[in-house]
């Protein structure tokens, strides 16, 4: 079996090496990637979409169909983690956690171990107990609003600077994970419960697809934002700019909530009970 794997790896590696000389040279202006559509994007994207950032224009407008399925892939990854990692059953091993008061060390006693119930030095703590740390909490409270504001800025400013739905969503999701780390998982779950998180992820995908369907209903092609001009009350070029913002918001919602859900499942082994 291992020999078979070696043969396969060598065979495909050899094929790849054999195909490498056929690639165009680095930065070759006559390469296929630089001859077909790239010059059109570079020359016309500002006039077509009123978006100075060519990357955003290409990502969310010219190849918006591709980005729609990228968002769907992220949503599907979140769902796959729900089915793979979520543990709905009762806990297999009943263990108890104790804190040693003088040192603050946490002990986990598995079932059948000697329980230090009678000692005054040990304090029984429940499965959601987390060490209280004033410094980390205060730093978290101080920094979090600015991180979240910056995330919204990255989403909204993707037209003009590097950024957009994916990047802003990741920053916002990281801010929520930082909240879970600096406070505890229970209060994060209070703000964004597991079910609501997954529903918002679905709503994010729905916003993207819904924008496309709306264009279809208004007489344009699927994801042709110029059709929204009448609805938004702007000219077709500006409508494409606004349409990009609409789908970016959908992407940001999906990415944020999928990131937070993944953290929930991975940090707690799918039980959502132990605050990290």
């Amino acid at each position: 079996m291992r020999r078979l794997g070696l043969i396969t790896a060598v065979l495909f590696g050899g094929l790849l090496a054999y195909a490498t000389p056929d690639f165009p040279d680095w930065g070759d202006p006559r390469s296929p990637a630089s001859t077909h559509v790239s010059p059109y994007y570079i020359q016309n994207s500002l006039a077509d979409t009123a978006v100075p950032n060519i990357v955003t224009a290409v990502l969310a407008d010219y190849r918006g169909y591709d980005t729609m399925f990228e968002t769907t892939v992220i949503f599907a990854a979140g769902l796959a983690c729900l089915f793979l990692l979520r543990n709905f059953g009762p806990r297999a091993v009943e263990s108890r956690l104790y804190r040693h008061r003088p040192t603050g060390i946490t002990l986990r006693i598995e079932q059948g171990g000697d329980l230090p119930e009678n000692s005054a030095e040990f304090e029984r703590i429940d499965s959601q107990w987390v060490p209280y740390d004033l410094i980390i909490r205060c730093a978290g409270r101080l920094v979090l609003p600015f991180i979240q504001l910056f995330a919204l800025y990255v989403v909204a400013h993707g037209h003009h600077s590097p950024g957009g739905g994916f990047q802003g969503g990741v920053i916002f999701g990281a801010a929520l994970i930082f909240y879970a780390l600096s406070h505890d998982l229970r209060s994060t779950l209070g703000h964004l419960p597991e079910a609501r998180s997954l529903i918002v992820a679905a709503v994010g995908v729905l916003i993207y697809v819904g924008t496309g369907v709306l264009c279809l209903l208004l007489g344009g092609a699927f994801l042709d934002y110029a059709a929204l001009a009448g609805l938004l009350g702007v000219d077709p070029v500006m409508a494409r700019s606004h349409g990009i913002l609409m789908v970016e918001i959908g992407v940001a919602l999906a990415v944020t909530t999928v990131m937070v859900s993944l953290y929930y499942y991975l940090a707690t082994a799918g039980r959502l009970d132990e605050g990290l």
Partner: peptide, 20 residues
């Protein structure tokens, strides 16, 4: 931002070491 977060991160790592 770094002036707030970097010492806090160091503190958190040291704290985890003490608790472990």
């Amino acid at each position: 931002l770094v002036f707030i977060t970097s010492p806090t991160a160091t503190h958190a790592i040291v704290d985890a070491g003490v608790r472990a």
